[in-house]
Nucleic acid binder design. Structure first.
Lengths: 121, 121
DNA sequence: AATCTTAATTAGAATAATTCAAAAATCACC
DNA sequence: GGTGATTTTTGAATTATTCTAATTAAGATT
């Protein structure tokens, strides 16, 4: 854990907006003006490979990063453009939904939903 | 529907391997040597926007295209590198699995699974 | 404290998928 | 068959990300 990694990680812990590498770069620059974009990419990669952070890909958009390690689904609100974390219901198992061939093993799964959230007035 | 679009579409109907734009380009070239990669991209885009073809994104890999319009899930077999289409069980509704806020509307969803399929000997 | 070793950061160039722009070709319709 | 609109082509541009080489920093060792 270097200064830079701690800074990037700290930012992700506070900021649940699923920022891109560039977003992270701009925000971290406030506190470490000399940091480079490549370092931000390196830090994010290190955090991801060490399992502290998840990399989230949506369509062909730039990757986003989030420090919410609990298993969850991403909901892209079309109105606001924001991404929300949605949890599974208790006891829900995706295997129950799918016609998976006998003996298939799931390593990892990613579910992304696009839609509209009710506007809260 | 132009010659090129028909060719690209025909290929996708026959080829369920979820080819990338480049794969499509190389294969279509056999029958239309003068076609350009940009045209393949244009054709794919046209087919996608007209709803004949789905664009599938997995992590940061190149987009893949498939003409299977039935709602399905993509299973990335880590052993073979191949992508398989998996269908939902009858009557399965993803809404039943998720703690979605009241009133949320789903426009579109994409589920991708990484894992191992049993090797068939 | 000085030095050695290793790993991380930096800056900038390189890469790869995709998109864009302009000119040429093709198509649909009169 | 001509005309206007749309596509294709070619090649250049863009953008996110990765790579490279050089520098710097961080510990460990004397």
């Amino acid at each position: 854990m270097t200064k830079q990694r701690r800074e990037v990680y700290g930012l992700l812990l506070e900021d649940a907006s699923h920022p891109t590498a560039n977003d992270v770069f701009r925000k971290v620059q406030d506190r470490m003006p000399q940091i480079s974009l490549a370092t931000v990419y390196n830090c994010l990669e290190a955090l991801v490979t060490h399992g502290l952070v998840n990399q989230v890909n949506f369509d062909r958009e730039p990757s986003r990063y989030c420090a919410n390690l609990q298993e969850h689904v991403h909901f892209h609100d079309e109105a606001s453009g924001r991404i929300h974390d949605i949890e599974f219901k208790d006891g829900a198992d995706i295997m129950d939904f799918l016609n998976l061939p006998e003996g298939a093993e799931i390593t990892e799964m990613e579910l992304t939903i696009r839609g509209k959230l009710p506007s809260r007035d």
